[in-house]
Computed example of a mutant assay.
Amino acid sequence: MELDFGVLASIHPDGHPYASRIGLALANCCTPMSLISELAHHTGALQAEAKCSILLGNVASKGNPLTQARMSLICHARFLEHGTKQDAELRQSFVAQRPTSKVYAGFSDFHVVLFDVLRVDINGGFGKAYQFSARDWQDAMNS
């Protein structure tokens, strides 16, 4: 399953769930990351409440999408401080993995956000549901 894009689910400051599609890349081989703008609703949501999830999975053009595999990463969002060495390195890494992000990666309103994976829920289709720990995720990503 690719980590190019995902659907980020967060809790909007008004208390309602909020979902949006975000671009993703990997930091340090197993931590999902994104570049998100101050203008995006999910930025304020994550700054107010770091608990979130990211839904991964592509929907095939044919067949029932509910029978296709998908994965939910249960995460804690962590914003990096602008101008730090880690911020600069991970922005560069994001652009290397997602070259089209070069257009906005340097904008001052964009933040590097790391999504620390706490748990992984996999749905392989009807009757195929599995749960994995953060350690299982790291081991799988490192292999």
Rank of each mutant, 00 (worst) to 15 (best):
R70V: 00
M71Y: 02
S72C: 04
L73T: 01
L73I: 00
L73G: 00
I74S: 02
I74F: 00
C75R: 07
H76P: 00
A77P: 00
A77L: 06
A77T: 02
F79Y: 14
F79S: 10
L80M: 06
L80P: 03
H82N: 12
H82P: 14
G83H: 05
G83Q: 04
T84N: 08
K85F: 14
K85S: 15
Q86W: 12
D87A: 09
E89Y: 05
L90I: 08
L90K: 09
L90N: 06
R91D: 06
R91F: 06
Q92I: 02
S93P: 00
F94Q: 12
F94M: 15
V95E: 03
Q97Y: 01
Q97H: 04
Q97A: 03
Q97M: 03
R98C: 06
R98W: 02
P99H: 02
P99L: 06
P99M: 05
S101L: 12
K102D: 06
K102S: 11
K102R: 14
Y104V: 13
S108W: 04
S108R: 13
H111D: 04
H111K: 10
V113K: 11
V113A: 02
V113I: 08
L114D: 05
L114P: 07
L114I: 02
F115L: 07
R119V: 11
R119N: 11
R119Y: 08
V120S: 07
V120M: 03
V120Q: 07
D121Q: 15
D121T: 15
D121R: 14
D121V: 15
I122M: 13
I122H: 09
I122T: 08
I122A: 10
I122E: 11
I122V: 15
N123Q: 10
N123E: 09
N123V: 05
G124N: 01
G124D: 11
G125I: 03
G125L: 00
G127W: 01
A129F: 09
Y130G: 09
